[in-house]
Amino acid sequence: MIFLCWSPPSRQEQKACVDNAGVFNYDSKYKGATAKHAWKIKQDRELSENGFLVNHARVLVGSGVETFEKGKRALQNWRHFSLNWAFVDPKTPIQRGVKFCVCSKAIFPWLLMPLEVVYVDESRSAVASFSFGSGTLQGHLLAGEERFSITMDEKNDVWYEILSFSKPANFLSLIGYPYVLLKQKHFACDSTLAMQKHLSAK
């Protein structure tokens, strides 16, 4: 089951995708795994032995409390998906259990990829952070989980981070996996640029 659309998907089409998507398409024992530090995920032998590849990007986007708070609001409003070839409905609430679609332009059609928010985490300790992780549902090209986070460290530097693990979920993504991996790298680059542009704007 794959969800396709020949033009940018409307909210009704996104809702239909979510309504027809199944349950999580990856093992429940990995649910919430992206809440761990990136180095732990990268060193997890079980993930790699089960065919998952880890994708990680962490970029400095500014400094100070104001930048952190602006970055947090940006994630909550899906600014990191404000791309001309990929988007999420910005009205989608970031709450555990909420299902949503990532709409991505492929070579010809648009792909609608269903996910569900697995966790939302916010910390106000020595390191301030806001993050959320989403797991793939049946109907998604990939099987796995992805986390987006904004963090302010002890030096008041603010970092935007993307962490995911995934593997092909069906035959189409298996034969096109090199292209899928390229799109993941492309997304990490474009999403980072979108966040940097948004946070630097006055």
Rank of each mutant, 00 (worst) to 15 (best):
L83R: 14
Q184R: 08
S191H: 06
P114T: 06
S7R: 14
Y119T: 00
C101P: 10
A74H: 08
D157A: 07
E154I: 04
R147N: 11
S166V: 04
M1W: 02
I150Q: 10
V102E: 13
A16H: 05
W159Q: 08
S125D: 15
L193N: 13
S134P: 06
V180W: 09
A169S: 15
I2P: 06
I150W: 03
I41P: 03
E69W: 10
F187C: 02
E46T: 09
S164Y: 03
G64C: 11
D19Y: 04
G139P: 00
G71W: 04
A35T: 01
L47F: 09
L142Y: 04
T192F: 03
V61E: 00
G133F: 04
S164R: 02
I162R: 01
I41K: 02
G135Y: 02
N20S: 14
G71F: 07
K183E: 05
G64V: 05
K31I: 00
Q196E: 05
S173T: 14
V18M: 09
S200K: 14
A16L: 12
F130G: 10
M195H: 04
A35S: 10
K155L: 11
A169M: 02
K70F: 01
V180E: 04
D44N: 15
V158E: 00
S200G: 12
K91F: 11
P114Q: 01
L193S: 06
E46I: 06
F81P: 00
R11G: 01
S7D: 12
Q43F: 07
K202I: 10
K202Q: 14
D89A: 08
L141W: 09
Y30I: 04
A57F: 05
W85I: 11
K31F: 05
L53E: 15
K29A: 04
V180T: 14
G62F: 02
P93E: 09
S164H: 04
T67P: 00
R73C: 13
V127S: 15
Q76M: 15
L112M: 15
P178M: 10
Q43V: 07
L60W: 12
H56G: 05
A128C: 10
C5K: 13
E66C: 00
A35L: 02
F130W: 05
Q76P: 05
T34I: 04
F130M: 07
L142F: 01
Y26V: 04
E161V: 09
Q12V: 06
F24E: 02
S191E: 03
W39F: 15
L60E: 12
F24Q: 01
M1K: 11
I2F: 06
N77G: 06
G64I: 07
Y119N: 13
M152H: 08
F187V: 06
S82I: 07
W85S: 07
G71M: 09
K99C: 10
Q43H: 13
S28R: 08
Q43P: 02
R11S: 14
Q76T: 00
D44F: 04
N156C: 15
Y177M: 13
Y119K: 09
S131Q: 10
A201L: 12
Q196V: 13
Q196C: 09
